[in-house]
Nucleic acid binder design. Structure first.
Lengths: 304, 304
DNA sequence: TTCGCGCGATGCGTTTTTTGCATCGGGAAG
DNA sequence: CTTCCCGATGCAAAAAACGCATCGCGCGAA
């Protein structure tokens, strides 16, 4: 929308921390951008940015204002999607922040299924860890977040939760592959692949491993589940995963065996959005879909 | 704010129901205004107005959009007031929709007291009856409403309520002036002045009078309490009022005597704002003030 | 300390956008 | 059928936004 140009510009400046960089990104000259910002500050009656030698930074008023600007964008998107819905064709754009877990299989399936019903709805999927997912909700860069970690921020509303028991993934000829359940002490002497420490899986594992004080042999750390899963086959090592991220293992010659919940506490997957925000039609309906889907596939999804 | 010009224009067109009338009001030509509207409709991808021979009218999409536009105005005002508050001086503008009752004494006192603390805050007081007060909250033309009538709309949030017993006002030499409490049957044979039928007072009275089927003698109807109060002295008639509207009667040679609650049910005064809306700082603080004031002066104010 | 670099601010001529005037076509009322 | 008022549109003038060149300023490297 044309009338929001200045607001969009301000948003970019705030993100870039520099008028010249932002102008570059926006494909205009820094003078034009600078003047737009001065004009808005003038209209508001007070500055929004501190001028530093290295660029600009939002001051307190700016922080308040930028939040308002972003909520206007989100509101406009919502109204547009609502208006489009009047024609019978659902349009819109849904932005999802998710950990790598759900991006493997669950979200691809869910998005694909939704898009087969509403082809005019587009999606953006942002991979990120818990805290940054919460931040994206707040800054209105994401509509929905799927977080496998405790919720920290008060501004996040949890629409549904699913309990996920930790699983151990290994080649089907691995010595532990015949176990029905794996204890921490079983891991001793085996080679382990762990996700990086930002991951919710890793945090749960760390807690469990620490408590049992087992000697463990970590041969690899990665933030790519796909890499790790492929790697296991060559090194005959052990990986960890939660059910929602378990893809077709059999075809790859892998098996997944649950860890004893007494050793590693089951984690909780949270489906969230920003508290107090009215989601666009498309996002709201998609949220409903995945709540249903979570409940059907992983049981015990809880509306809150 | 300059960037909202088009939105402001659309709002006026929607209210006026005609591009030419709106253009006149906005002191621009109808062509310029027309093109702005066409431009926005073009950007949105669909029309907001139906073109009638006599002007324009919002269609469904337009209704959705105009609500969004108005909420943006309100939001901007809120953010501006919040930013001003950073400087330590509270600024802002509070718009109150109220029945005539509270406009007599209570609100003048409350506003005056608040302005003595925060002289940079300005006020607008709109006199209106219950339903239209609710409509003003919805269309964001008012921040706060003080309604002496049942709340009808679901979008209204009641921040506090006060029970108000109906009183009968009369010259101090009136035959009924020595009663401690007045029954409906006492009214027979006396001349009555009633508020117009939109008034909450009148509605309560009608219910009571109807139930008792008393023969009554209505000599005057008016929507001006001030007129009626002055009139009583000359005609030696009876008027009706609720405590919040009772001004210095003694000086005018008048007395107020409660009606028996068994005959005329006490009404409820509601202090409201739009549900889900974040009020500007000034309005929110003023709301707090009058909740306190209501509780102190009329007891039993109830936060909800 | 000096020099160079990158930053935001500003004066001025140019380009783009917006506005106003005149006018068209069409429905409603007299 | 005529008249009036409505919104839409072509075109020229006015206004706003833009880009270029340049200034002043603080920081970091030499």
């Amino acid at each position: 929308m044309r009338y929001m140009t200045s607001l969009r510009f301000i948003d970019v400046v705030a993100r870039e921390g520099s008028i010249r960089k932002a102008a570059d990104k926006l494909a205009i000259t820094s003078t034009a951008l600078n003047r737009r910002i001065l004009a808005i500050e003038d209209e508001l009656g007070q500055p929004l940015f501190e001028r530093l030698p290295s660029g600009v930074r939002l001051n307190t008023a700016g922080e308040l204002f930028i939040q308002h600007v972003r909520s206007q964008f989100a509101e406009l998107a919502r109204v547009q999607s609502q208006i489009s819905d009047l024609t019978g064709i659902r349009r819109g754009h849904v932005r999802i922040a998710s950990g790598a877990d759900a991006l493997r299989l669950f979200l691809p399936q869910a998005v694909s299924q939704y898009r087969s019903l509403h082809p005019a709805v587009t999606f953006a999927l942002q991979r990120c860890y818990g805290e940054s997912a919460e931040a994206r909700l707040q800054s209105l860069d994401a509509d929905i977040a799927l977080i496998f970690a405790p919720i920290r921020a008060a501004h996040v509303h949890v629409a549904a939760t699913v309990r996920q028991t930790m699983h151990c993934v290994m080649p089907d000829d691995h010595p532990l592959s015949q176990h029905e359940m794996i204890r921490i002490r079983d891991l001793a002497g085996h080679k382990l692949c762990l996700p990086t420490s930002e991951s919710g899986i890793r945090q749960l594992l760390d807690t469990g491993l620490l408590r049992r004080a087992t000697e463990i042999d970590v041969v690899l750390e990665s933030d790519s589940f796909e890499f790790m899963q492929n790697y296991l086959r060559f090194e005959n090592a052990l990986g960890f995963q939660i059910p929602i991220a378990l893809t077709e293992l059999a075809e790859m010659g892998l098996v997944a065996i649950p860890l004893d919940p007494a050793d590693v506490a089951p984690g909780t997957l949270h489906l969230c959005h920003l508290k107090g925000r009215v989601l666009p039609v498309a996002a709201a309906k998609f949220l409903d879909e995945i709540i249903t889907s979570l409940r059907d596939n992983y049981g015990e999804a809880v509306d809150q």
